[in-house]
Amino acid sequence: MIDVKNITKIYDPDANAFLALDGVSFKIEDGEFVAIMGPSGSGKSTLMHILGALDTPTTGTYFLDGKDVSSLTDDELADIRRDKIGFVFQSFNLLPRSTVLRNVMLPLIYSGVGEEERDRRAREALHASGLDETHFTHLSNQLSGGQIQRVAISRALVNNPSLILADEPTGNLDSKTGEIVLGTFQKLNKELGRTIILITHEPDVAEHADRIIVIRDGKITEDRKNHKKKDAVLELAKINSLKQ
């Protein structure tokens, strides 16, 4: 469970102070699929960094699974990221010189999981995100954009995290591949009960989630249930039929 209370983030507090987040509060229950939406400069990246334990807030508290993450040291934050958070970034998600399997294993390597166990779990995660087994031993620079994102999702899954955090995961993809990737998130949320936070600036993308939090100028302006949730499978069928 995520409990964010009155978080502020001030960059450069001495000289020209910039208030990136201004009193943000919300709760996300386990198993929710939430989209955080906002234009660039709205503070959503800052919020993502704090939610992802890459950064700490200036004031306020952030509880992840009952643990206060807002005042941890660098190493403690690294451990939180390793054990409780799975990241999917817009680009440069994978190590180019390593195989798909090796990339997915990486979080397990850092948590010291044994070789057989990590191979098993990496394969399991890759199957869950629907990547074909023939690609497992490919180097990651031999994959297409959609395949790369699915490998990244597998890596985000592999450590059994409390939270999967996706930062503009479809930003570099065409709409068809984007739907496939979003469909993977929906499937993981529905079938495996994963908590997913999707950061995006596109309303179309945000509408794949169950709940949408809109942020603007560092403040939450909207936090609503998404009643017209898009199903990626149907959307994909639509795109395909349009093409024909």
């Binding site: 890459l54 660098d74 190493d75 690294a78 451990d79 440069f92 990486l106 979080p107």
Partner: peptide, 14 residues
């Protein structure tokens, strides 16, 4: 960027 990625997925400074 590789270092950033490694840190994001939980590598400690050490």
């Amino acid at each position: 960027r590789e270092i950033g990625l490694r840190k994001a997925i939980g590598a400690r400074n050490k």
